[in-house]
Amino acid sequence: MGDKILKIENFYAGYGHTWVLRNINLEIPEKKLTAIMGPSGCGKSTLIRCINRIHELNPEAIYRGHIYLNGKDIYKMHPTIVRRKIGMVFQKPNPFPTMSVYENVIAGYILNGIKLKKEEKDKIVEDALKKAFLWNEVKDVLHRKGTFLSGGQQQRLCIARALAMKPEILLLDEPTSALDPKATSRIEELIVELKKTITIVMVTHNIAQAVRVSDYTAFIYLGELVEFGPTEKVFAAPERKETEEYLVGKFG
């Protein structure tokens, strides 16, 4: 299974007094795409929000256990450092409304107070936008507000924004569920290209999408990890009854 970049050990998370995730143990392989699937409300978003410590922004949040990035416990690091190394893209595109396309891409640097020379900035912006398959569409409107782009373009802008920080892992929470089919396939192409150079963890409800883009699949049911393995295997011959029922229900 290649090298493991991220290890989740005996991890619990929840809200208020109830655990939503219980005893999760999962090892994410490097430079591969791991899909996280499961019925609505099973805790997929909660899990990936724990991976870059966004979960704890919720005042109700509770959590327990360990997550190791390259062997280091992320809950012993400063959250801002963790988040710089583990980027995230959300369900609904959320470019910063007061910033231009250009500023949105280097937002991570602006927000972290990192001063760059103009040439450096230009290069980061161009690289990130190219990686996000967006350069050709926006290179002439770099200084317009990011919110003027279409939904699919906005989502790719958000991906570029995350990539510009050169993260080790990219988390995607249903990145295409708010987009039309055409924009969706653009993003899928992009993701397939990206996973050659970066580890991706993606939550998706779309089984066909998982089959198309992912290398590994984790299946979560009622807050527990019930199945994890290479995607073809999980889909072709699920070991657990819950997985099978979910897949059948979805296909049928």
């Binding site: 988040r83 927000l111 995350a162």
Partner: peptide
């Protein structure tokens, strides 16, 4: 969330 995700 987006801002925090960038490590701000």
């Amino acid at each position: 969330e987006a801002s925090f995700s960038l490590g701000a």
